[in-house]
Design a protein around this nucleic acid. Structure first.
Lengths: 202, 202
DNA sequence: GTCTATAACTAGATAGAC
DNA sequence: GTCTATCTAGTTATAGAC
């Protein structure tokens, strides 16, 4: 995967390319891809519109970089978080904590990956959808393991997986850094909610 | 409330205005407000772009009509659904069933109300946010009542309300009419999930 | 109430000087 | 690698004939 797929680790930090990606992430998340102009992006970075094109090929490429990099980061982080866990219950809890804290701490890039990726042209869209599918397979596997190992109550695998995943993802919509609870506290509440709904008596 | 706030009951059904609202709802939901042009909307309706303006004042007004009408319909429907219920548990279940079935059966208008309303100008945005706030207060009240009456486990009212609401709303993102389960079946599963997560032992 | 034609403006992206 | 200036094509909305 090209370095374009990694928006976070600025390369180097404070580089013009990094500042463009940061500003694009913030603007795309706040106002939507189509609502943001290259003139507005340039102004946020502090350069002229023409200069943007010395650091990126197009607006589409910026969106792809952010969306695909975020999906890849989510999957790799999830794989690392569940790798050390001894059983299905611990793995699902570790995944919820990872997913929720990521969506709370990196709200803007998560929103771009979740909500704005549909603005991509066909080829780039396929790339992001493939990354997202890989991530969703991982989550479905966690549910399957818990059903087999612990007898979790899952009336319909796909519906329950969608319910859990969308609930945890939507944290990027309402979480505020200056709110009453931190990302870790929210993640703990979410993990308890998810496990309680799966471990109830039939 | 003006008739503009009611996108569903076509006035009369099959009228040009109704067909414009239906097409706008579908296009805004599928591709986003800013990505849809008035030329494209006109083509979907089968008239020329200029003719649209004999039936609506502007693209902004179309978005407001859909978003505000949907939020109003959601709140009024919820009030009707919970009115007959005898206790807090029944009221919350009735709300989940109403909210989920609405988001499954009217996916497109729900998506416009949930995702596209940010494209509104300041004044219209305020109108939709006020309608949304009224709806959220209703839901928070249902949770409060259950805590008081049944001792539900709610570690943080705002976090738990957000978790439940966003989960039920996101049904408009993944539900498919031709999927394996109907709206009623999905709503029943969701109601069980929500109540199980609230009624667990402390 | 539909049409053709167009006004007024903005979009993403490029050319070429420095 | 930044700038000024601009190209081409798109946008929402309107004017006025029929």
């Amino acid at each position: 995967m090209s370095s374009l797929a990694r928006p976070l680790p600025d390369d180097p930090p404070g580089s013009t390319q990094g500042r463009i990606l940061d500003a694009a992430t913030r603007l795309f998340a706040e106002r939507g891809y189509h609502a943001v102009g290259m003139r507005e992006l340039a102004e946020a970075v502090g350069i002229r519109p023409a200069s943007l094109y010395k650091h990126c090929a197009s607006k589409q490429e910026l969106l792809f970089t952010i969306a695909h990099g975020t999906m890849t980061e989510l999957r790799e982080g999830a794989e690392a978080a569940i790798a050390e866990q001894p059983d299905a219950r611990s793995r699902l809890r570790a995944w919820v904590v990872w997913h929720v804290t990521y969506h709370a701490r990196h709200r803007e890039r998560a929103k771009v990956a979740d909500e704005q990726f549909r603005a991509l042209d066909a080829e780039r869209l396929q790339g992001v959808l493939a990354a997202r599918d890989a991530y969703e397979r991982l989550v479905k596997g966690l549910i399957d393991d818990g059903v087999a190992a612990h007898g979790w109550v899952v009336p319909h695998r796909s519906v329950v997986t969608n319910a859990i995943t969308t609930m945890c993802t939507a944290v990027d919509d309402w979480f505020r850094e200056d709110g009453p609870l931190g990302a870790d506290a929210v993640a703990a509440i979410y993990a308890d909610l998810v496990l309680a709904s799966l471990e109830r008596k039939r």
